[in-house]
Nucleic acid binder design. Structure first.
Length: 596
RNA sequence: GUGCCGGUGGUCUAGUGGUAGGACCUGAGCCUUCCAAGCUCAUGGCCCGGGUUCAAAUCCCGGCCGGCACACCA
């Protein structure tokens, strides 16, 4: 196991990531990905896109990071994302004011909804004390802290906006158009990879908890009554589960099972969530997460977000701690329903019935030439109220007069004027609000996990060697090319080989400095899976030139002709064969190197 | 946000009220035909601001950044 300190040091020194704006003292919670880190992150994103967008037949979008205030009124982030903090004057501890009240006052369960002033009052009335030191908190100010970054759109006072706290909202808000694009057919999925922002009170633990981070999210829109995931694709996938029941039990333990069994035994409630856990398991394994340090943990009841009906996290163990690297939430119809209520657009899809239905519907057709002169500006509202009444209580129209309330005023109308009737109508279907299943991945945390799990040390010729055993698919550099020594003919050939490999689309690093061993170590430390060395032996005689090809983890080499090199490397990097396969087909080089 | 500890070349680190030394790295050269070798030379540093002092990188205060603990993490 590697400590956070050693990994952070390597990350800084080798250009994976480092604190941003250090020239100006640094900014807590913001990191820059250096050349190696940016390449690694890009490769992780590509692998995610390949699996969760392309392979699943979904579509990817790119929405703005700044969104106007009403979006977050609808999503609940403006209220639900607030923390009410109160600070003890005696010991300086900060506490959640709303939690204090919920604990102390029996009949208040959601103190957050009460507002700052009322919460301050309640603390006075109940004479609440600091849980840490016991000093009275009465009279201390309660501060609202919203975790969203606020900004202002346009000049002057502008309109208030926020940096999105999750990429998901960019997908939900555009649902009306995305639905059109999907031709109104459920199920369909939309993905987005991009930055999200949370103004954390206290960023911690390096890159693990930051204020700007990259999310890769899939919003799967489904008809909850009809759509089922292709569970047969993942039924046999083995997973390590840590359900809420086990977390609560004294002797709770992990459950090793398959996705199929977990559904049969109702450990995972939602088949869709289970499906995505299965897909994710395979993906994490592929990009290089150590599956012995990986688990799916179910959220405890009190832990769930305001939108989530059931939620599982993917967690990895890094530096001895478990961190969340993805969340799988069944969000129900919460998001689309809310945006539908708050905006002018329709966040529904039309679901056709198998057979058209004939229904009796009570309607009114009010004589507006009578209502208008009588009620003036209220006439339109009265007409609407009559229609509502017709639907909810048609019997009200049996008598001669009917009364409706509009804004607290009562209006009484002759029933004749309302033109009440019951008509038979044909309904071909209904508008339903889709449910949403959301796999949401933290890209930065995944990158950190991969570095942690790839970090290795061994001994080569009695010297300690540090190397990153990254999956070839996601390693920042595919291959490094060296001339064994600085002779002109070796340098020229090595240059040509590097150029040829670049032309084949590989990410190539060229290095002719210092001793060959030093150059191998450099590449080991950034996880480059292969090194190609041009030596005199390979250029001797009239036969085709050859080079040595070295594999990172074993440090073993084989001799291969330059003509075959690009194609063989491409195949291995694409996961089509391994270095061991090449060893069977090409001459091994005895290097006298011993690894232990 | 609170408490404790810390901040010296790219990285790691020694050190003192009189402006700094090492190791590794990096660059140039010599040597070198496969794993951080050796030799020569070179580049490069006291987090920021204020105070005390003849003099502050050193002491004091504040800020910023980092680590740990608490709180927080929808």
């Amino acid at each position: 196991m590697v400590g956070q300190q050693a990994l952070t040091e390597l990350a800084k020194r080798r250009g994976f990531f480092f604190g941003a704006n250090e020239a100006y003292g640094g900014t807590a919670g913001f990191y820059t990905f250096g050349p190696e880190g940016a390449a690694l992150k890009r490769n992780v994103e590509s692998a995610w896109r390949e699996r969760f967008t392309l392979r699943l037949g979904n579509e990817e979008i790119e929405a703005p990071t700044v969104m106007p205030e009403p979006v977050f009124e609808a999503s609940g982030h403006l209220d639900g994302f607030d923390d009410m903090l109160i600070e003890c004057a005696e010991c300086g501890e900060s506490h959640r004011a709303d939690h204090l009240i919920e604990d102390a006052v029996a009949d208040i369960e959601d103190a957050e909804a009460l507002g700052v002033d009322r919460v301050e009052e309640l603390i006075r009335e109940h004479d609440l004390a600091c849980p840490t030191c016991g000093a009275a908190l009465s009279g201390e100010p309660v501060e609202d802290f919203n975790l969203m970054f606020e900004t202002s759109i346009g000049p002057g006072s502008g309109q208030p906006g926020y940096l999105r706290p999750e990429t998901a909202q960019g997908i939900f808000v555009e649902f009306p158009r995305l639905k059109e694009y999907a031709r109104g057919q459920l199920p369909f999925g939309v993905t987005q990879i991009g930055p999200a922002y949370r103004n954390e009170i206290s960023p911690r633990r390096g890159i693990i908890r930051v204020r700007e981070f990259t999310q890769a999210e899939l919003e799967q829109f489904i008809d909850p009554e009809e759509d089922e995931p292709p569970l047969e694709d993942v039924a046999d996938v083995e997973v390590t589960l840590y359900p809420a029941s086990e977390q609560n039990a004294d002797d709770g333990d992990y459950i090793q099972t398959t996705i199929g069994e977990a559904i049969d035994e109702e450990i995972i409630g939602s088949p869709w969530v289970a499906y995505f856990l299965g897909v994710a398991q395979g993906w994490y394994e592929r990009v290089g997460v150590d599956m012995d340090r990986f688990r799916f943990r179910q959220h405890l009841a009190g832990e769930r977000a305001h939108y989530a009906a059931d939620c599982w996290d993917a967690e990895s163990e890094v530096g001895g701690n478990w961190i969340e690297i993805a969340g799988f939430a069944y969000r129900g119809d919460y998001d689309l329903r809310k945006h539908g209520e708050h905006s002018e657009d329709r966040f529904t899809v039309f679901k056709r019935y198998d057979e058209p239905k004939t229904v009796e519907r009570a309607t009114v057709n009010p004589d507006m030439s009578a209502l208008g002169p009588e009620f003036g500006g209220a006439a339109g509202d009265v007409a609407d109220a009559l229609q509502e009444l017709a639907e909810s209580d048609p019997d009200a129209f049996d008598s001669n007069e009917v009364t409706v309330d509009v804004d607290g005023e009562s209006y009484t109308i002759d029933t004749d004027v309302a033109n009440f009737s019951v008509e038979e109508q044909t309904e071909n279907g209904e508008h339903i609000t889709p449910h949403v299943v959301e796999p949401s991945f933290g890209v930065g945390r995944t990158v950190y996990t991969l570095l942690d799990h790839a970090y290795s040390e061994d001994t080569v010729d009695d010297e300690t060697r540090t190397y990153l055993s990254l999956a070839p698919e996601i390693a920042p550099t595919d291959v490094a090319v060296f001339p064994l020594v600085g002779d002109d003919d070796l340098v020229t050939t090595a240059d040509d080989v590097a150029d040829e490999l670049r032309a084949a689309g590989l990410s190539v690093s060229y290095d002719d400095s210092g001793s060959i061993g030093r150059r191998y170590r450099r590449q080991d430390e950034i996880g480059t899976p292969f090194c190609v060395t041009v030596d005199h032996e390979g250029l001797e005689g009239d036969s085709e030139p050859t080079v040595t090809l070295r594999e990172r983890d074993s440090a073993s080499q084989l001799r291969i002709s330059v003509a075959d090199l690009a194609a063989e490397l491409e195949a291995v990097l694409a996961g089509d064969g391994t270095f061991a396969d090449l060893q069977d087909r090409y001459e091994r080089v005895d290097t006298d190197v011993t690894t232990a």
